[in-house]
């Protein structure tokens, strides 16, 4: 059974200029432990797909099952809990909170849990050690390099041990050697069993994925799956 199932998931935005069908009805099954790359030109629906996979915006139609849970049948608050438990986000441009140190940024998903501050700190340190930043815990984001900020963002995505990580252009702002380091880190995590879904423009990153879904005009254009993964693009 697949870990993530999209059943005719679609998203239409209503603007003053009219309807924009950002994602046409799409079916997709993704196995646990996948390292899936989502690629495509601007406006192809990549970000919309990632937003829907992250439980951040309601689809216009269709359903999304993650670990057997129908994500969009939950109310907004339950979905917030779900995101905290199930999804680690690595945003474009890091999206660290500027007034919090690296350690505090990593602790952020735990701040609204019942975990004690001491345990939060331990978990944050473990995550920062995992990404090789144990010596930068007290630094503010503006005191860190781009690569270091990206690592802090990855540590934040890992801190509560979520079953899946969604990454949006994580190497978009990095030079090629730092990009390679970050992609190596993602690959290591994937080899440890972490499911990772990543949107990227960078063709260099394709080699890290074990499956690539290419979108065009809101539809799955090309899918290069592993033999065990079934794809059904209906859009």
């Amino acid at each position: 059974m697949s870990f993530i199932t999209l059943n005719n998931l679609s998203k239409t935005y209503h603007t003053e200029a009219g309807e924009v069908r950002a994602l046409k009805p799409t079916g997709l099954e993704i196995a646990e432990g996948s390292f899936l790359g989502i690629v495509g030109p601007s406006g192809s629906g990549k970000s919309t797909l990632l937003t829907l996979l992250g439980g951040l915006a309601k689809p216009s139609a269709g359903s999304l099952l993650i670990d057997g849970i129908d994500v969009y049948r939950m109310n907004e608050e339950k979905r917030a809990d779900f995101r905290r438990e199930y999804i680690g986000f690595v945003f474009q441009a890091y999206n660290l909170i500027p007034y919090l140190t690296a350690e505090e940024n990593v602790m952020l998903p735990l701040a609204v849990t019942s975990m004690s501050s001491r345990k939060q700190r331990q978990a944050a340190l473990t995550a920062l050690q995992r990404v090789g930043l144990a010596n930068r815990v007290g630094h503010l984001p503006n005191q860190l390099s781009g690569g270091e900020q990206e690592r802090v963002a990855i540590a934040r995505a890992l801190v509560n041990n979520p079953p899946m990580i969604l990454a949006d252009e994580p190497t978009g702002s990095l030079d090629s050697s730092t990009s390679a380091e970050i992609m190596d880190l993602f690959q290591e995590l994937n080899h440890e069993g972490q499911t990772i879904l990543m949107v990227t423009h960078n063709v260099e990153n394709r080699k890290y994925f074990d499956r690539v879904v290419s979108l065009r005009d809101g539809c799955v254009d090309v899918d290069e799956p592993k033999p065990t993964v079934k794809v059904a693009a209906t859009g």
Partner: peptide, 16 residues
């Protein structure tokens, strides 16, 4: 807005 969006994405409920 952006910061609040990050909080919400990371699992903060409305009341948080």
């Amino acid at each position: 807005c952006h910061e609040i969006g990050i909080f919400r994405a990371l699992g903060f409920r409305k009341h948080h």
